[in-house]
């Protein structure tokens, strides 16, 4: 029920977006893959299902403690960043042409990962005594 509703909304958003794009209003998203060819699934599937894959793995990992996958490749946010972070900024977010942001702002879908997750590839956190 909720899913159908979400799909409807997504479809409507997409339709509206494509209309706007035809009118030349909104620039098309920039999809630049810095480190191509290593994805866990074909691009079509990733485009459609990356959120479901990430959500599935997130629940498995956090709540059940499953790390990685027994066979094949598991979805991993840190894994995504390794190939998709921009070479200039080192991040998947933060700019209009960033990998996540360009599509998400085009489709008007809120990004809710990077408030908590580190969006930069190979980032090493430093600690200070609080």
């Amino acid at each position: 029920m909720l899913r159908t509703l979400l799909h409807l909304i997504a479809a409507a958003a997409l339709a509206a977006a494509s209309l706007a794009a035809q009118a030349g209003g909104v620039p098309k998203p920039v999809v630049k893959i810095e480190n191509p060819g290593k994805c866990i699934a074909p691009a079509d599937e990733m485009r459609r299902n990356h959120m479901e894959m990430l959500k599935h793995q997130r629940d498995l990992t956090l709540r059940e403690g499953v790390r990685g996958a027994a066979a094949g490749k598991a979805a991993s946010l840190n894994g995504c960043i390794e190939c998709h972070a921009s070479k200039q900024t080192g991040s998947v977010t933060g700019g209009k042409e960033s990998f996540c942001e360009s599509c998400h702002s085009y489709a008007a879908v809120k990004l809710d990962c990077w408030d908590c997750h580190q969006p930069k590839a190979g980032y090493k956190a430093t600690g200070a005594k609080p």
Binding site: N78, D115, C116, Q118, A125
Partner: peptide, 16 residues
């Protein structure tokens, strides 16, 4: 407050 500079393996952020 909003955070940045998290350890990639330890996500944490505002409001939680």
């Amino acid at each position: 407050q909003p955070l940045s500079g998290q350890n990639p393996e330890v996500p944490r952020g505002l409001g939680c």
